[in-house]
């Protein structure tokens, strides 16, 4: 099947934070089709390889299908965590945005995975 290379942010959003010296990165598909793709391709191994420079001791993936979500735990990835880390981003707040910039190869026709902007009620 023909594929096309796009950033992960085309099909998903997310948020990251800290648990002591561990970071969690939630990746949330915009659509059901996107979630099917994420479940198959965005494995713990793929995420571990992407963040290898941070040297996590282990990467584990959890699922939250109710929000089309995959939650990645990067254990011991914060160089000491909020208290001890010498990094600017002691709490891994930037890691979700970093992961969403990962290049992924999705089917050339991935319309069904794209964020649907029409039906949301307008903000007051």
């Amino acid at each position: 099947m023909a594929t096309t290379r796009v950033p992960l942010s085309v099909i998903a959003h997310g948020r990251s934070g800290d648990k002591g010296n561990h970071s969690n990165i939630a990746v949330l598909a915009y659509t059901d089709a996107g979630f099917v793709w994420l479940r198959k391709h965005l494995t713990a191994e793929v995420v571990a390889a992407y963040f290898a420079p941070l040297d996590p001791s282990n990467v584990e993936r959890f699922e939250a299908a109710n929000v089309r979500g995959l939650n990645f735990m990067l254990y011991d990835a914060l160089a000491g965590g909020a208290s001890r880390s010498l990094r600017s981003d002691t709490q891994g707040k930037t890691l979700a945005l970093a992961l969403l910039q990962m290049a992924i190869d999705v089917p050339a026709d991935h319309t069904a995975m794209l964020r649907n902007l029409t039906p949301r009620p307008p903000s007051l």
């Binding site: 997310g14 969690n24 939250a64 299908a65 929000v67 939650n71």
Partner: peptide, 28 residues
């Protein structure tokens, strides 16, 4: 959705003193 998983480890087991909450059971 973004906040539901914020600083969560296993979404099916969110430990608090009151209960172990299953965040995967919440329908939005």
């Amino acid at each position: 959705s973004e906040q539901l998983l914020y600083e969560v480890e296993d979404p099916a087991r969110y430990y608090t003193p009151d209960v172990v909450a299953d965040f995967t059971s919440a329908q939005l």
